[in-house]
Simulated scan of single mutants.
Amino acid sequence: MENMIKKIVDADNEAKAMEESALKEKEELAKKIDEETQKIYDSYMKDALETVKRNDSLEEKKAEKLWEEIQNKQKSAHIKLQSDYEQNCDKWVDAIVSRTLDTNS
């Protein structure tokens, strides 16, 4: 009878030890999963930030190029207007004076 009780107690102790071992293994696996999840998240965020920086740089270059094109067009228009003014200033003044005098007569 004592032998039977000893076997039951031993079996119970062994079951408790197995349960503790399984719980410890479960905690370790959960920790590993959390660490791996964090690594994946960090890697994804790093890649995302690099993509944003790269796109930011490209967009900035495009904006600078567009700004230069606009400035060049503005300079060209200014040069043309200045040239037209220098060539036609006297004619325009004469035409304005002539029209003014014709309407007053």
Rank of each mutant, 00 (worst) to 15 (best):
V52T: 07
L58V: 15
S57H: 04
N55T: 08
S43F: 09
E60Q: 07
A77V: 14
D42Q: 05
Y41V: 09
K61L: 06
I40M: 09
R54N: 12
D42N: 08
D34P: 06
K75A: 12
K80W: 03
A48L: 11
Q38L: 13
D56A: 07
K39M: 01
I79T: 15
I40G: 05
M45C: 01
Y44M: 14
E68F: 09
K80I: 03
V52D: 00
E60R: 00
E60L: 08
S57V: 03
L58C: 15
A77G: 06
K65A: 15
D42F: 03
K46E: 01
L66S: 12
D34N: 04
T37C: 06
E59D: 12
E60I: 15
Y44H: 09
K39H: 02
L66K: 07
K73P: 01
R54K: 07
W67R: 08
D34F: 07
Y41D: 05
S76R: 15
Y44A: 10
M45G: 01
Y41A: 14
S76W: 13
E64G: 05
T37Q: 00
H78S: 14
Q74Y: 06
K62S: 12
W67N: 03
A48K: 02
N72R: 05
E69K: 14
E69L: 09
I70V: 15
Y44Q: 10
N72A: 09
Q38T: 07
Q71R: 11
K39F: 04
K61E: 03
E35N: 00
A77H: 10
M45A: 05
W67K: 06
R54D: 02
Q71G: 06
K62E: 08
E35C: 04
S43Q: 00
E50C: 04
D42K: 01
E68Y: 13
N72L: 10
D56L: 12
A77W: 01
D56S: 12
I79K: 06
R54A: 12
L66V: 15
D47E: 04
I40S: 12
E69P: 08
L58T: 11
A48F: 06
E68A: 15
I70R: 05
E64I: 11
K53T: 03
S76G: 13
Y41C: 04
A77K: 14
I40T: 06
S76V: 15
